[in-house]
Design a binder for these strands. Structure first.
Lengths: 100, 100
DNA sequence: CCTACATTTGCCAATATCTGACAAGTCAAT
DNA sequence: ATTGACTTGTCAGATATTGGCAAATGTAGG
């Protein structure tokens, strides 16, 4: 399970019976790139996610969440301190929301 | 609170009554760089963390945790879906640990 | 086996991003 | 005004990532 985002968009694309060659041009890329994105070998650009969501009739927030999760996971995937670092980060996020 | 790692190492350095100019050469960098690192304007390299920990007589794991947290935070800091993304990532980390 | 089509892989030039190094700047104490 | 500590700006060089093409692989039908 290398890229949750990639897996998700592949599943969605297949559900819509679309080929890479049909979707890729709508994102202004070639099939090779999109293939790599689906396999997690490349990252799609953040700003392309809403476009892709509309092509695949998916929830943009859901795709963005998975995309962010992939980015986060890349940081900590081989770290024994992953969980601790996640915890510290969450506290930082929450303290920001409470404005202190 | 831009960089928890930076704040921490500055505090530690000051507790040891060390100057930038004393610490920087031990990390093979100049004072300007180390200053930026302490202020969160630059990232120290992961492999320099244990060296720095020994200079500052700090727990390497604690510093690494803060450093990782900074990296994580950089990914999601302006994202409204930050919390959701964190949650998804944690599940991925944990499912990896249970081997499924 | 041969062809057609979808997808994947490998490569590398182009681009984007980050870092190292130096110079000049601020600030505080004397 | 000088010194010492730290900060800031700049920018070429190093690193990392991406885009685009060509070739390779896989698959189904004839």
């Amino acid at each position: 399970m290398d890229s949750q985002f990639g897996e998700k968009i592949r599943t969605l694309r297949e559900k819509q019976h679309l080929y890479l060659r049909q979707v890729a041009p709508l994102l202004e890329m070639d099939t090779a790139q999109l293939s790599k994105i689906e396999k997690g070998l490349r990252q799609i650009k953040r700003e392309q996610i809403p476009i892709l969501a509309s092509i695949l009739k998916a929830d943009p927030d859901e795709l963005l969440t998975l995309w962010l999760a992939d980015q986060l996971y890349a940081v900590v995937k081989d770290e024994k301190l992953a969980n601790k670092a996640m915890q510290v980060t969450e506290e930082k996020i929450n303290s920001k929301n409470t404005g202190d």
